[in-house]
Amino acid sequence: MSLKERISEDMKAAMRAGEAAKRDAIRLLLAAIKQKEVDERIVLDDAAVIAVIDKLLKQRRDSITQYESAGRTDLAAAEKFEADVLSAYMPAGLSDDEVVAAIEAAIAAVGAAGPGDMGKVMGVLKPQLAGRADMTEVSKRVKAALAK
């Protein structure tokens, strides 16, 4: 069963169980997936669906920070719930050691010599680590490794 099919089945289960908040969070995800498919005129595979989920999670994290700084704990709690629902569809995260090993392997694979090769390294890492590691943090680590 593909990830998109699993998400659809989970929405049906949430509807049957009367879980309105979970249903709404999943419905938002399915709408984002459908929008991407319509915009690009393609059918998304699991990797592309994970990219959509990752984007939505990033939006939720930003919203949570802003709501908490504004003292709106009610809205922050709703965003946290949606983030938890979305996180369930993400693949297991990588440990720091695994991320470091992947960065070192990518640097060796492209023969990166300095900061100018960062784009090549990130081009190799993005498909491998997307959804499994915070790409902003990976970018910082690559930059630090190439600066040596």
Rank of each mutant, 00 (worst) to 15 (best):
residue 5 E to Y: 06
residue 6 R to V: 03
residue 8 S to D: 03
residue 8 S to A: 07
residue 11 M to T: 05
residue 12 K to G: 10
residue 12 K to T: 11
residue 15 M to K: 15
residue 16 R to L: 15
residue 18 G to T: 10
residue 19 E to W: 06
residue 22 K to G: 03
residue 24 D to W: 03
residue 26 I to R: 00
residue 28 L to S: 08
residue 29 L to S: 00
residue 29 L to E: 00
residue 30 L to T: 02
residue 32 A to Q: 06
residue 35 Q to I: 04
residue 35 Q to N: 08
residue 41 R to V: 07
residue 42 I to E: 04
residue 43 V to R: 12
residue 46 D to W: 04
residue 53 I to Q: 01
residue 54 D to F: 05
residue 58 K to H: 11
residue 59 Q to P: 01
residue 59 Q to S: 12
residue 63 S to T: 13
residue 68 E to Q: 14
residue 69 S to T: 12
residue 79 E to C: 09
residue 79 E to F: 05
residue 81 F to P: 03
residue 82 E to S: 13
residue 83 A to C: 01
residue 86 L to T: 02
residue 87 S to F: 02
residue 93 G to P: 05
residue 95 S to I: 10
residue 97 D to I: 12
residue 98 E to K: 14
residue 98 E to R: 15
residue 100 V to I: 15
residue 104 E to N: 15
residue 104 E to S: 14
residue 106 A to S: 12
residue 109 A to E: 15
residue 109 A to H: 11
residue 110 V to E: 04
residue 111 G to F: 08
residue 111 G to A: 06
residue 113 A to V: 15
residue 114 G to Q: 11
residue 115 P to K: 13
residue 117 D to R: 06
residue 118 M to R: 14
residue 123 G to A: 04
residue 124 V to K: 10
residue 126 K to S: 07
residue 126 K to C: 01
residue 128 Q to E: 12
residue 132 R to L: 07
residue 132 R to T: 10
residue 134 D to M: 04
residue 135 M to G: 05
residue 136 T to Y: 08
residue 137 E to Y: 09
residue 139 S to Y: 12
residue 139 S to I: 02
residue 142 V to E: 10
residue 143 K to N: 11
residue 144 A to T: 10
residue 145 A to D: 06
residue 148 K to L: 07
